[in-house]
Nucleic acid binder design. Structure first.
Ligand code: FES
Ligand code: FES
Lengths: 159, 159
DNA sequence: GGCATATAGGATAAAAAGGTCTTACAATCT
DNA sequence: AGATTGTAAGACCTTTTTATCCTATATGCC
């Protein structure tokens, strides 16, 4: 276990979003899909469909409610739902922001305190380009669009 | 502290690479620069110049040595150095691979087991594009190029 | 009203990443 | 040869992230 390489490679997959954020995106897409069918979805169903731990998913959903991405209904027949208009409005960027904040846009690729073009790290130019593309993509992608792909059966929320 | 948003936003900056990988890139660039001047750089100097914890940096350097990115010289006047030819050859992708593995190329943006175009997650198309751009960038960027920017004083390894 | 079924929210636990320390060993210089 | 300066490697500690548990509270239905 002293091999750092093996340690890294097989334990954590380093990508853009935190685990919570990944769950949040998947959950939002699912809730959106259900909402289009006028259905309120409860926590258990979301966790099941999204393949996420129930209790952790609860935390994430709370956060999404606080950030006005979905709303919650208490009591039996309750759960989470999205306003139909919101489904078109909400984009990926909003969801990511609700959970991970805007660090992904501000952060330096080499881990310097913050990205600062006036004192750039060696990869700044190249990195900033990718990061801006990512930001643009997140802002341009609506939840509606993603839910549609799911509805049609072209995409999957878990495997 | 129950506010997940605050927790996420102000604690961890989620980006592409692990901390160790960030240090590795910075260290490699610095060693490359010193090597161009025919200088062997010792661990302490690297850590200082790169702004990384000494002991942790030692681990990272070991990994870089194992992966043939730099070589080490023991004893007094020892340290780490790069073959001059290697400086042009080695690209960012190699360094990232040495520390984080290839997860960044294989991973799914929504955290599914692995990215699989035959059973894509809802963001697959858009995400894969960004990820491929990143890969291309990493493969096209040589350490030489980055070291040069540093030498000229245009870029910084720490602030 | 009372009961069943939801979410809300705080406290807590487990796992992973990040970081340190200590001992061993290698090379160079007197 | 011995002292000194350096890397190698494993054990260990700390912090952050991920995940769970438990109690309180809200809502719908009988
Ligand atoms: S300063 Fe590093 S990415 Fe901008
Ligand atoms: S399947 Fe999710 S990114 Fe390819």
């Amino acid at each position: 276990m002293s091999d750092l390489r093996i340690l890294y490679t097989f334990t954590k997959i380093y990508l853009m979003f935190s685990k919570g954020c990944e769950y949040a995106i998947r959950a939002t897409i699912y809730v959106a899909l259900q909402s289009q069918r006028n259905q309120c979805t409860n926590l258990k169903a979301i966790a099941e469909e999204v393949g996420s731990p129930v209790a952790f998913t609860a935390k994430i959903m709370q956060q999404l409610v606080k950030n006005n991405i979905v709303y919650s209904v208490m009591g039996p027949t309750g759960g989470f739902q999205m306003d139909k208009e919101r489904i078109d409005q909400v984009n990926l960027s909003e969801v990511v922001n609700a959970i991970d904040g805007d660090a992904i846009y501000r952060g330096c690729g080499l881990g310097l305190e913050a990205c600062d073009a006036s004192q750039p790290c060696p990869v700044h130019d190249k990195f900033a380009k990718i990061r801006d593309d990512l930001q643009k993509m997140l802002e341009e992608t609506s939840i509606y669009e993603l839910a549609t792909g799911l509805e049609v059966g072209m995409t999957f929320l878990k495997r």
